[in-house]
Write a protein that binds this DNA or RNA. Structure first.
Lengths: 218, 218
DNA sequence: GTCAAATTGACAATATTTTAACAGGAATTT
DNA sequence: AAATTCCTGTTAAAATATTGTCAATTTGAC
């Protein structure tokens, strides 16, 4: 039996960035790259790169480095990008519509199968490839289409209720844009995109530089 | 002279979440809270909470705990939320328009002063409170209005060029939604919101659970 | 074919982050 | 007002994460 060595969250967070740089290298026509070269491009240590990749077994070769395309595909597979992922949008406001319209996701295999909103005036309106439907059709469609991911772009109060509804379905994961921590069973994965939090961090950086400057002036 | 003890990124990332929970407590009318109670709500250790707050000096009192409103305001100040932040939108597509329309930012003091796009057909169109202008007015307006934050919602190729332009202005920070790492001087802070990366992490979680299940079945 | 240069994967050494433990002060109870 | 409980700030310990080092192996030059 294989040792279930847990991969740390830090490593996983770095994978999409590697993937992006490898895509760029492919586009440039580069065939091979060493951890040193890559580290210089990405401004991280070569040691970290090698360590990260080694979490999943060795992808490189001594004296040669890494084959760009091979490494790219392997990381893509680790990230589950080799299979299609079905999604539904819940909350067809500005942000939701922007996400559905964002074609890059589709290119990576993330496909919206439907959109839902509670506002009757939106029913039937088309966003991207899909039509906006009333919320009472949500669970039925999820089960019927075996939807994997729910993209949640509703106000925080609604988000809590919807999370409870989703808990009773076959949904695997929630991509949560609402400013709350969702109460869902363990089997459902949640990835939060808290835009306010992100903006506050930026604000912190600005403030902390101001403060440093001020102290230097003393 | 004060010891410039660098606050770790991990701590800063947690501050907005504390802030959010404290806001909720205020809304509930709770006056005081102990690290233990808060830890149970937030599903983190009490030790971490105390440690985090102590990075900025003691906000609590032995035997009493923390005064909710006081702590909330202190963290708000640390995050720079006690002052207004001026922003410009660069790239008035779906996502950009959604962000400008998002009123929660304004409530926290983040105010859009202008929006820019390269598409002539958008010039003059109103999004939220502001009018979309041509890109050649960008640097002028930033300098004139002493804009702090540029919100970048343009395709990746455009993003690189615009980052270079911004480097020559008084802009303090870039909130970057493009899928690239921006080349900017050190004095400009960058906060990335890489939506694809976030979605890939979610995809990873799904995949890794599938794999675990499969191995268990063996 | 031999040798120098390059480069990984593994492991050891640091550094950082998180958690636990506890002394001491404040609030509350009796 | 004494005693008990509560709870912070701080220090110590444990756990994680990152970086440095090097033997082993491959490539590429001559």
């Amino acid at each position: 039996m294989l040792e279930e060595k847990e991969i740390s969250q830090a490593v996983i967070s770095r994978l999409p960035r590697y993937y992006r740089y490898l895509q760029d290298l492919i586009d440039e026509g580069t065939e091979r790259i060493s951890s040193k070269e890559l580290s210089e491009r990405m401004h991280v240590t070569a040691s970290q790169i090698r360590q990260d990749f080694n979490n999943f077994g060795g992808f490189g070769q001594q004296g040669y480095g890494y084959n760009v395309r091979y490494l790219h595909d392997e990381i893509g597979q680790i990230l589950g990008l080799d299979q299609e992922h079905s999604m539904v949008l819940i909350g067809a406001g500005n942000l939701g519509q922007a996400l559905v319209g964002y074609m890059n996701f589709k290119r990576r295999g993330f496909v919206f199968k439907a959109a839902f909103d509670c506002k009757p005036e939106l029913y039937g309106k088309k966003v991207g490839q899909v039509v906006i439907r009333p919320m009472n059709e949500l669970t039925g469609l999820i089960e019927q289409e075996k939807i994997e991911i729910a993209v949640l772009t509703v106000p925080k109060t609604a988000a809590m209720d919807i999370a409870k509804v989703l808990s009773g379905t076959c949904i695997r994961a929630i991509w949560n844009f609402a400013h709350v921590d969702l109460p869902v069973p363990e089997r459902i994965q949640v990835e939060n995109v808290h835009l306010s939090d992100s903006l506050m961090k930026l604000s912190y950086q600005i403030r902390s530089i101001d403060q440093a400057d001020q102290e230097k002036a003393d």
